[in-house]
Design a binder for these strands. Sequence first.
DNA 1: CATATTGTCAATTGAATTGGTTGAGTTTAG
DNA 2: CTAAACTCAACCAATTCAATTGACAATATG
Lengths: 145, 145
Amino acid sequence: MLSQKTRYAIRAMQHLADHFGEGPVQLADIAEAQKIPPKFLTVILSELTRSGLVASQRGKDGGYWLGVAPIDISYGDLIRIMRGSLALVPCASRYAHETCKNCVEEENCRTRALMLQVRDKTADLLDGINLCDVVDAEAFAQAAE
Amino acid sequence: MLSQKTRYAIRAMQHLADHFGEGPVQLADIAEAQKIPPKFLTVILSELTRSGLVASQRGKDGGYWLGVAPIDISYGDLIRIMRGSLALVPCASRYAHETCKNCVEEENCRTRALMLQVRDKTADLLDGINLCDVVDAEAFAQAAE
DNA sequence: CATATTGTCAATTGAATTGGTTGAGTTTAG
DNA sequence: CTAAACTCAACCAATTCAATTGACAATATG
């Protein structure tokens, strides 16, 4: 499951994508439109800003905007940034590999072999959809080809 | 991510599958072979027994065995039993649907639309592999067709 | 029937994670 | 200079997770 924080991050990014090119969007506006506790959103937007996907400006008339074109931000990127990995087990992560605790040797772990495949398929899907896509069944089927 | 408990459950079930038809396998044997804390394993095996996938017998020479043929137990089943759902968000679960807390309306939630597709693809994969399969790249590619 | 062996199960525990807030800054426009 | 914004570390309560404790029930064997 994605954490609440990751879900908030995704909605915040969708909101910024919807207002891309319109100048800074203020945190309070995002919070209200996306039903995110404003103070918690500061934590989330700070993380996203540090990651480089979001740019920000302080002071009066400040706010946030995408630092990267929405077409270049995939859902896979967002989940990797917020959760660290797309995989279901640490040892099946490609970008953030870690050995699982209390496990058998990785080479002959059948669960790992399966989970690597699941991770790759999930990545194909999540990296194939970006913040510009209107996600519906058709768009998705197309992206999955 | 799958919880440690779910990972232990998967390894325990693989172990039982490997010894299917050989009579009861004792908890201590599973625990040792699969590096699972024995007392924790009692909790896990009790849950699996209650689910019907595992049968058990008490007393001397007792133990556990699969109550269902390994070919009829998919990895999807195991994860659903242990974790409740295959989905990344509660509102995208097919068997255990729940509305997400603090979310926008489900009908026009873009995240949900995407996560439903991810769930379905994941289910295709995980339900296509069972405890009889030796999971490797080839077997998997075949199952994914 | 006595006993050792094995599974059952609820309750508890300690640690980590989650979801979120507080509050003290810093930057910027006007 | 000041109000409007973002920044960030520290903190907090509640929940979840991983695992253990300990009392109990069933079964095979002598």
